[in-house]
Simulated assay, not measured.
Amino acid sequence: MDRTTLKEIDPNDDWVKIRTIDLHTGGEPVRAVLEGYPLLNEASVLEYRNFFQKNQDFLRQSLMLEPRGHSDMYGVIVVPSQRADFGVVFMHNEGYSTMCGHATIAITKLAVDSGWIEKVEPLTKVIIEAPCGILTAFAEVVDQEVVSVSFENVPSFVVALDQVLEIPELGVIRYDLAYGGAFYAFVNAIDLGLKCDRTNYQKLIQAGMLIKKGITTNGVTLVHPYEDDLSFLYGTIFIESSENAQVDSRNVCVFADGQLDRSPTGSGISARLAIHHARNELGENHWMTIESILGTQFKCQIKESVKFSKYDAVIPIVKGRAFYTGRHEFWMDPNDPLVAGFELR
């Protein structure tokens, strides 16, 4: 038997077929969905997000959860856009994100490498419509290879600083609230006796979810100035100093239903830039380096200050690298009792 030769196996006509390219950015997975989702006529990305949430959520569950994914899988659905080169709908184990920096870096690399956008050296510009607004990304191209990606995020702003909340399981915590395409609570890890390392993985998830629940229930009310769909606390970000002298600090983000970001969290460090700016700790055009729980790094800086409704906001720039991990065609057999996926922890 020649095990390198396989008889052609084709899905039945009534099976759903989803084609993807998988990547990672800083260790955080990105499953980019290219074919298989239904498309709408002249819809905005927010309309796509609402449509997928209400009518196609079994596809998200099937792609993100086991047996095709896992509890920490992350995805992005590429859709047409009337306002940009293309649109993106972000998804995870619980639902749909409003912004994602690591996925923006990955999909920009894929768009340029795939020829959706003509590859131009040294920088190829890509305009992306995300649920939170328009993102401007730049692929750095050297000898026809995309070696890094940076993007200008939406206006990012501080909601509240130095807030205090008692959480029975954790005691009194101090936190900041800021927006970088999604709303985050920022907590110093040392205040909880935690380290942002792999040995504290489960403790960080547990504490992050308790803080998110506590703030959502008893903390500051979050209201996006223009879109009600964006008015919710997405995650908790723990901050600590880095042992690497070339790195400014470490970020660990716990989001959705207890997912822990392997990357430094692009939208999260965008919100951090707004906090640093509000505290007069960081000016424009000064690069910071933030590392993840794995030690992978994003660079970030404030491009400019802007007014965003009532908020004094900043336009962040975030820079990182993405890498391909595979190409897939997933099949959903309607007779499979686990076709919608499952989750075990």
Rank of each mutant, 00 (worst) to 15 (best):
P67E: 12
N280I: 09
D162N: 14
T296F: 03
I9T: 14
D143G: 15
V126I: 07
Q61M: 13
P38E: 04
I269C: 10
F58I: 07
L161K: 08
E8K: 08
V252G: 02
Y175L: 07
H328N: 11
N41S: 12
G133F: 08
L338G: 12
E291N: 13
D72R: 15
E291P: 08
K109P: 00
N41Q: 13
F51R: 06
V306H: 09
N55C: 12
V16S: 14
L46G: 01
D229H: 09
D14R: 15
E28L: 11
E129Q: 10
S309C: 14
S71T: 08
K303Q: 11
R174N: 14
G208R: 03
F232M: 03
G341S: 09
E28K: 06
I190W: 12
A111S: 05
F308C: 13
G27F: 04
E42G: 05
K303I: 12
E8G: 01
L210S: 14
L65V: 05
K125A: 13
V30D: 00
K109I: 00
A278V: 08
R272K: 13
I105G: 00
I237P: 01
G75N: 08
C132V: 12
G115R: 05
E129H: 09
D257E: 11
Y175I: 09
H24C: 06
S44Y: 03
G219W: 06
D143W: 14
F342V: 14
E140V: 05
I134K: 04
A340V: 15
L294N: 12
